[in-house]
């Protein structure tokens, strides 16, 4: 062994606690920076330009954002995002309800739990197709059932006032399943002694749920909130598959409208699309900030506790 190699060996030895994590982080960090972190900043930059994705880009300052202010379609999309957010949260109580219903130990319950969870495993594309056929005015099962009960037919996806709600209902199906599984796992960990103690204190039904069970389900509820809010703001697949933004653009949300502007059939408006993406990102950032703050608090508590 030569002197130099011994030198490097000792240098490595001395600094191994610094060098090792850097080497282990490098590949992952590199990928993540190139494909996720840098593009975020690039999108901010592109949103200040008028660009068709091919030719030269013209700097237009905040013009794209000014245009958003007068764009009726942007306004519709924004309102639909609000609807998605508000109604998607229903998945949490619905998931809790099903979890409570299934939290028993009868024969075959495991299979029931898996089958109730099953919609979550399907891709959103398949969920979208399944529901658009379910809603079909002539061939759909929904209208067959409505007619059976003597009610008239509805064309949910063809009606601008109903279509968004029809899509959200489709989205709630897998999302409820997700929340259900979170709560089922949470219920498994509920402390039986506390439940017994609650029973001795005369807590029953709703009271027991509210004062004894739900506080213990807090971690599950937190994750359910995170995934549901992110899921609501990310909704794209269902809209694209079920209505493609229609009828008359009534089902667009920001994520879909952005795609339409940047890569849709009406031409490539990368700058304008990026401006929409930035708005969506800023909305999401409020939630992301809140989530991270919560996690950071837990992290600190774990370190000092």
């Amino acid at each position: 062994m030569t002197d130099t190699s011994r030198d490097t060996a000792t240098w490595m030895q001395r600094n191994r606690m610094t060098v090792t994590p850097i080497l282990f982080l490098l590949p992952g960090l590199l990928f993540f920076t190139v494909y996720v972190i840098i593009p975020i900043f690039q999108s901010f930059q592109i949103s200040l330009y008028d660009w068709d994705g091919l030719g030269a880009a013209t700097y237009v300052g905040l013009e794209n954002y000014r245009e958003l202010g007068t764009d009726r379609n942007f306004e519709i999309s924004l309102w639909n995002n609000v609807r998605w957010l508000a109604l998607y949260l229903l998945a949490i109580p619905m998931g809790l309800f099903i979890a409570l219903f299934l939290n028993q130990t009868v024969v075959g319950i495991r299979l029931y739990k898996s089958l109730f969870f099953f919609p979550f495993v399907l891709s959103q594309v398949v969920v979208g197709l399944v529901f658009s056929w379910f809603y079909l005015p002539r061939e759909g099962l929904l209208n067959a059932v409505l007619q059976f009960f003597g009610l008239g037919t509805v064309n949910i996806l063809g009606d601008p006032d109903l279509a968004t709600y029809g899509i959200i209902a489709a989205g709630l199906w897998p999302q409820t399943a997700y929340c259900m599984i979170l709560y089922l796992t949470g219920l498994n960990a509920v402390d039986p002694e506390q439940v017994e103690a609650g029973r001795l204190d005369g807590a029953k039904g709703w009271k027991m749920l509210w004062y004894v069970i739900l506080p213990q389900l807090k971690p599950a509820t937190f994750i359910a909130f995170v995934v549901t809010i992110i899921g609501a703001l990310r909704s794209f697949d269902l809209i694209s598959v079920m209505t493609n933004g229609g009828p008359f653009g009534s089902t667009r949300v920001l994520s879909f409208y952005m795609f339409e502007q940047a890569l849709g059939e009406y031409g490539f408006r990368m700058g304008y699309g990026s401006a929409i993406a930035v708005v969506l990102f800023l909305i999401m950032l409020v939630f992301i900030g809140y989530f991270l703050w919560q996690m950071w608090r837990d992290e600190r508590a774990a370190r000092h506790g």
Partner: peptide, 8 residues
């Protein structure tokens, strides 16, 4: 957690 559209 970021929206895909900001990366697109």
């Amino acid at each position: 957690f970021v929206p895909f559209q900001i990366l697109m």
